[in-house]
Design a protein around this nucleic acid. Structure first.
Lengths: 342, 342
DNA sequence: ATGAAAGCGCTAACAC
DNA sequence: GTGTTAGCGCTTTCAT
């Protein structure tokens, strides 16, 4: 392997180097590093001086072999979903303030990859894990949760007992979105949803479908209700969307499970010469940056992504701190109105 | 801390567990794990059976204390740049095929954060580092490169000696973009660039500025050449762009250093009632997903982001493998034509 | 309050 | 070809 290496080579400053420099024991240095109990002010000062002078940085690897690594693992499903940076920002803010580092694992939305990623984090001795928009089933997570504190964001598992969840109220968000469409005078409102998942109600799309149905029913519009499930992610959605908007029974309005599909839908409408919202109104979910662009002007549900991240980090830290009762946080979404729905 | 823990607790399967189960020494197991030289087929089979049966996974932390971790660190500046997922995909493909894991560090574009991130990766005993769009100065990197193999993507340091670089030819890309504008009949072509960096020519924007000037000069249009530098990232660019497009000497065409600014510019034009490209033509750089949307239709330079990632990973692996001569890879960009430039 | 020493799980010499 | 063993840098009892 490469020469350099961080290995024991000549230069590397270890806890022992510091101890010798400060004229104390390694145990003393260790205690100072961890703010442990039982160090005199004088000793702490000496040690801190040496640490600063030598530029000592503890090895996370060595730490991980016995104690905490003070590192949180964050699992992201792909890095192309525009909501992720916001969630991540929230996590980072809280974690950093508490003196924790973050390592990110990026997984395509394949379940197998995700499981590998969790194990990788385990192998790296993270102190805790935040799973964002994971697709892994609840019972599998319960098993992992026995090995490491876990918080899940964007996946509804209200009956989970050994890991925490943080979500926005997807049903409510959908009701708000559909309500806005109804208030704007639309009746023939369709919904664009993800393909049917195997593990029923845990994912966000099915939750939003429920909210959609509830809102339609409450307005006496159940007869208009229809949910179009997108084909698998591998299949291009373009054809499906074109079919939806060019058929004879084209809906007058569409509530999309996510901006990820709402924005392409607006583009398909544009291609077909349909005006938004005059010919077809659209509301999305996530209030992503692209939605806010004037040429798009997509009305969208904002789920306070940063708040989700912050709540997740707080939950994880309290788990690490010893809490064992489960915690399920639900944040309230709000609608951001632009030009696409009325 | 939390009960569970991955610590030595009851269950954890270590190399010793495997050794006992297989009836061999720990060294034997270690060798099998690393495909090291000198293990009989019979022994290897026994050990592999035990590993599978016990579900053994080596601790990266422990590995890192003596040997390689088989983990590559990837430093991303923010996760909101749409080109990053592609680069990442390229890195991951090559790394995975070679049996390496990846850990991602996410840093806002603040330089101090980046340095911290590098040290964090060092602390975690990564085998090598890929820095994507880093802003860190070359001499600082040279220093870090003595401790760990480093490859930099999207930062021109042709004279670097201890770390490798992988880039697209930003000057050429700019020349192609400006050439397309000239071919479309435009003469009054401005360029939108990043704020002037301290470390002159290393970043991509200044390289693209050079290409812009060269192309303008070659066409005898130097008198039209003008580069508008965006304000610092904290300041909203909106006002600056509005000023550019609404002044009396509004340019007829704009080459933008990145889609990141080209897309907002198109939106500003839209707000001002300007038609693109009839009133103002626009060409961007990076060929991001949003650029491809029909409502945007942005002509943009594609720098083969996935190829950059793959080249970077290959370079890093060969560094780790022992190469010590420096390697500077340059890929060739191509223009993707849409509706915004003619 | 401080330090000595026993590991943590693994790799890499070095014996056999 | 296989096993023994000495660390890697740190945390953590347990003496002092």
């Amino acid at each position: 392997m490469a020469d350099g290496g961080t290995k024991t080579g000549a230069g590397r400053v270890t806890i022992r180097t510091v101890a010798e420099d400060a004229g104390v024991s390694v145990a003393a240095v260790s205690k100072v590093m961890r703010n442990a109990y039982g160090v005199s002010e004088a000793l702490r000062l000496k040690v801190e001086a040496s640490i600063a002078r030598l530029g000592y940085r503890p090895s996370v690897a060595a730490r991980g072999m016995r104690g905490q690594t003070f590192t949180l693992g964050v699992l992201l499903v792909g890095i192309d979903n525009p909501i992720l940076p916001l969630i991540y920002g929230g996590i980072e803010g809280v974690a950093e303030a508490a003196g924790y580092k973050i390592m990110v694992g990026v997984g395509a939305a394949r379940m197998q990859t995700e499981a590998r990623l969790i194990e990788q984090m385990l192998d790296n001795r993270m102190d805790g894990l935040i799973l964002v928009a994971s697709r892994i089933a609840g019972d599998v997570l319960e098993r992992y949760a026995r090995q490491i504190p876990i918080v899940v964001v964007g996946h509804h598992e209200p009956s989970a007992r050994h890991f925490d969840t943080v979500n926005n109220d997807d049903r409510q968000g959908a009701r708000i979105a559909v309500g806005a469409l109804i208030d704007a005078g639309h009746r023939d409102i369709a919904m664009l949803a993800l393909p049917h998942p195997e593990d029923h109600q845990a994912n966000v799309s099915p939750q939003r479908e429920r909210g959609y149905r509830e809102a339609m029913a409450a307005a006496g519009l159940s007869s208009f209700a229809r949910i179009v499930h997108m084909p698998q992610p591998e299949v291009p959605r373009h054809a499906e969307m074109t079919a939806l908007l060019s058929g004879p029974d084209r809906p007058r309005a569409v509530f999309c499970w996510s901006d990820l599909d709402a924005i392409p839908l607006i583009n398909v409408a544009h291609e077909l010469g349909l005006r938004v919202p005059a010919d077809v109104a659209v509301v999305g979910y996530d209030n992503s940056q692209v939605a806010a662009m004037p040429v798009v002007g997509l009305t969208s549900v904002d789920q306070d992504a940063r708040g989700l991240g912050e709540a997740a980090a707080r939950a994880l830290l309290s788990r690490i701190g010893g809490r064992s009762e489960v915690s399920h946080v639900i944040l309230h979404p709000r609608l951001v109105c632009r030009t696409s729905h009325r």
